[in-house]
Design a protein around this nucleic acid. Sequence first.
DNA 1: ATCCGAACCTGACGGC
DNA 2: TGCCGTCAGGTTCGGA
Length: 269
Amino acid sequence: MPELPEVETICRALRPRLVGDYIQAAVVRQAQLRWPVAPELFQLSRAPIISLQRRAKYLLMQLANGWFIIHLGMSGRLQSLPMDTPEGKHDHIDLQLASGQLLRFSDPRRFGSWLWCTDPYQHRLLVHLGVEPLSLAFNGAYLGQALCGQKMPIKPWLMKNTVVVGIGNIYASEALYRVGISPCTPAEQLDQGAADRLAATIKQLLEEAIAQGGSTLRDFRQADGQPGYFSQRLQVYGRPGEPCLRCHTPIVYLRQAQRSTFYCPTCQV
DNA sequence: ATCCGAACCTGACGGC
DNA sequence: TGCCGTCAGGTTCGGA
């Protein structure tokens, strides 16, 4: 699924197409996603789209009287298509827009969600989230502070979303490789210099990935159907046994907190 | 308070 | 060919 760069890519592409348009109606073919889809989807009629924002990996679509909170889960897609596009097996939600475009949500695994609320930033799923990694609030000083007393290995710790959001399984491995930190290091053992480098690296990595339209492993597509091209720049993720690009040591596969981790045992200590 | 495993689903792939 | 086990970009939840 999409991590932050993939969701941001979608958000940037869809925003100019959607904002100012009107939702005429929604067609819901499968209401059972991660949670049952918002009943408000069934009551739309000439609803203006006021804004489209991203918070962590959530897309927030503002209408006149509330917001849809959209999550793509592991395999969700959101695409703007011509109105007459034939539907596929996993095309669960269509929004028919006044301009003639179709906003289509597809999600084979159905881990995605469409919820409704009046204030997304106070919603229970969002209210506890940490800072945005691309914001000024996320920096070495903040990260260094947050690491104190944290005994969990740094890789799963980065993915928790309570301190900093948006770093998923791919970019957690990639960021740690770039800074030369072992994914097994207890978070509290990173000194301030390491925290500074890690924060800066995370920002740079995510920005590069956004510039490339995200990473496509299998499912991910940008809003126009194109894959993301950052996959070609991944240095450790999905490369077990292949040589480290720096020192040629075989990349190691490791299971951490039920997720796959990839790292170079020589470069990352 | 913290951590781990299970849970929500379908599909692709490799081994036998 | 086909069945089975394993894995997949996320995140919440319950129980230890």
